[in-house]
Computed example of a mutant assay.
Amino acid sequence: MTRWGEGTARGAKAGEWLAMYALSIVAALVIASVVVESTGGDWWPVVQALIDGSLRAPGRWGETLGVAAPLLLVALGTVISAKAGLINIGQEGQLLMGAAFATYFGFLIGGPGPLNVVVIMVFGAVGGAVWAGVAGVLRFWRGVPEVLSTLLLVTVSTQAVAYGLRWNWLLLAPGAERGNRNQVSSQLPTDNRIPRPNIFGNEFPVSVYVALILAVVVAFVLARTVWGFRLRMLGLNARAAQRSGVSSVVYGASALAIGGAFAGLAGAAMFAGGGFSFGNFRLVPGFSDNIGWTGLLVALVARERALAAVVAAFVFAGLRTGSGFVNSTGVESRITDVVQGLLVLALLVPPAVMFLRDRARARAAATARV
């Protein structure tokens, strides 16, 4: 085939992908509108409320960026694990343990504001890596599937943090600081928090910039370095990778630990960056608030592409921040969960359809040759 023919074929295939995605998204939005109408609401005011709550209202796009940052960090870690062929679904627990490590060592070490922010972020990443490392040890030294161990460790992390919030020498704040609230950590001092610049009336933590930079770094490392090539080789064909000298234990365990480190970093960013009224610069029960699960969906929708995860994280963050405005339309704000689920399905349908079509064509070609 000539170069012109190859370019035409690639263009046609790209057109098919775009058409499939557009059709799937339109179908998802139509179904979502039907669901809204069936609950007694009007779909157009709901759409406007979502846009106002996530973008147009004063200060809202800054809030959306603040939520998108930890979602993106979790997604990046998931991408790294997935490239090695590992299924890590314990991001919620790794994020929570990262926040717990960040809280404990942040108050234990202390220090000047900027230094303490670095301490919090570093130990947050360490906490997530350690927790994911437990699953790595079980996977590569005891043969326990990581999809099972990472999921079960979410429950263990919840109980571990709850235990830590029972004791002052671990995570629990002194009685005078807790007031009427029980089982909360001390509040992070103002000078130890991640800076939150104000741009055009929108305030968000600088962890947004960190997440964007890391997305570029991860994309580059996975696509342009020897380590990234070996990691992708391991994920595509573990046996061929091992025959080429790629250690499944070294690369697999490191990928799982790095994935956990990103989730732990997200937890530290939530603790020190604010923007989550649920925690308000404190570690509390349920602190992770489903950010780990949603970050996993972000990576899934982005099809394990670091740069695509940037857009997906912003969309999911917009649904989250815009849901508070949906109540003003008389529709239950949980309807955004339905929209989110439909969008996830819409973005997963095209790859499945294209895979089945390509496999059917390959079988037909093989039959014709016979």
Rank of each mutant, 00 (worst) to 15 (best):
Y104E: 08
G133S: 11
S149P: 04
I80D: 03
L65C: 10
A129H: 00
G62I: 11
G124A: 07
I51E: 06
L65D: 04
R60A: 11
R56E: 06
A49P: 08
V79D: 09
E63F: 11
G127L: 05
A100P: 15
M121C: 12
L96D: 01
V118G: 12
M97N: 04
V119Q: 04
D42G: 05
T103V: 06
I51F: 15
P145D: 03
L95H: 09
P45K: 05
A99P: 01
L65N: 11
A75Y: 05
K83S: 06
L76A: 03
T64M: 15
W43Y: 11
K83C: 03
F107Q: 02
V154Q: 10
S157G: 10
R56L: 13
I89D: 06
K83W: 14
E146Y: 01
Y104V: 09
G110Y: 13
G53L: 12
N116M: 07
A68Q: 00
V118Q: 05
F105R: 01
G127M: 02
G128L: 01
V117G: 08
V144K: 14
G106E: 01
Q91F: 02
Q94D: 10
F140Q: 05
G98L: 11
I87C: 02
T150Q: 02
P114A: 02
F123W: 14
G164K: 07
P45S: 04
L71R: 03
P114S: 00
A75P: 14
